[in-house]
């Protein structure tokens, strides 16, 4: 494992911790999209089915379990915690997730490495992850003012993807015969989804002010 991959994973983990801490400390999930969090849970469940039949490393297994547990913890807070769930912007978080899930599933059936249940579900999880942030970005656009923690959460999620891109370039030049087109193309799309957000995030940071999205 190279340094870019490790940095990517750690940024991903940190983004989730930041979100969980925000929810726990402020007892509020205002500005957080439950749809996006549920999509991530679907992504992790369909991708990490290999926990049952393949072992790569202790690091790999532990990280997968952490991602699964934290995803369901966040959903639990937003749906069941009696204080936190009242702060959820249900009326604003109206993205139709089936418009993401169905096309990703069809694409996974058409473009995959192998026509098996686990391989198609794994491919589906790769496609779905690329667009899972969209409900969150739409919610952000609607509520306009972005609180610092939510902004940092999304910024770290985007950074994690950017670090994975660098990791793939590094692996391409250092590992003989290493290529994974499905992951590369989806990952590039996923990183591009964040570009607009990055622009406004960096602008707010440079001007030392609270982040605002244009109407």
């Amino acid at each position: 494992m190279n340094i870019f991959r490790l940095a990517g994973d750690m940024t991903h983990l940190l983004s989730i911790i930041v979100l969980l801490l925000k929810i726990q400390a402020t007892k509020s999930c205002a500005g957080v999209s439950l749809k996006t969090q549920e999509l991530y849970a679907v992504v992790f469940v369909t991708r990490y089915l290999d926990l049952f039949y393949s072992f790569i490393s202790l690091y790999n297994t532990v990280m997968k379990i952490i991602f699964l547990l934290t995803a369901f913890t966040i959903i639990w807070y937003m749906r069941k915690h009696k204080v936190v769930c009242q702060t959820y912007d249900k009326e604003q978080d109206t993205f139709r997730v089936l418009f993401l899930i169905v096309p990703c599933f069809v694409l996974a059936l058409l473009v995959n490495h192998e026509m098996s249940v686990t391989e198609v579900l794994w491919t589906f999880s790769i496609y779905l992850e690329a667009v899972a942030i969209l409900p969150q970005l739409v919610l952000l656009q609607r509520t306009k003012n972005v609180d610092n923690l939510t902004g940092n959460y999304i910024f770290m999620l985007g950074s994690y993807r950017a670090l994975y891109l660098v990791n793939w370039v590094y692996r391409y030049f250092t590992e003989l015969g290493y290529r994974q087109w499905i992951v590369w193309v989806s990952g590039t799309v996923q990183t591009c989804v964040y570009l607009d957000f990055f622009y406004y995030y960096v602008q707010a940071w440079r001007n030392n002010e609270r982040m605002k999205l244009p109407g």
Partner: peptide, 10 residues
């Protein structure tokens, strides 16, 4: 051809 490579990334 398309070979499923080892899924060592998260």
């Amino acid at each position: 051809g398309a070979q499923p490579c080892e899924k060592d990334e998260l």
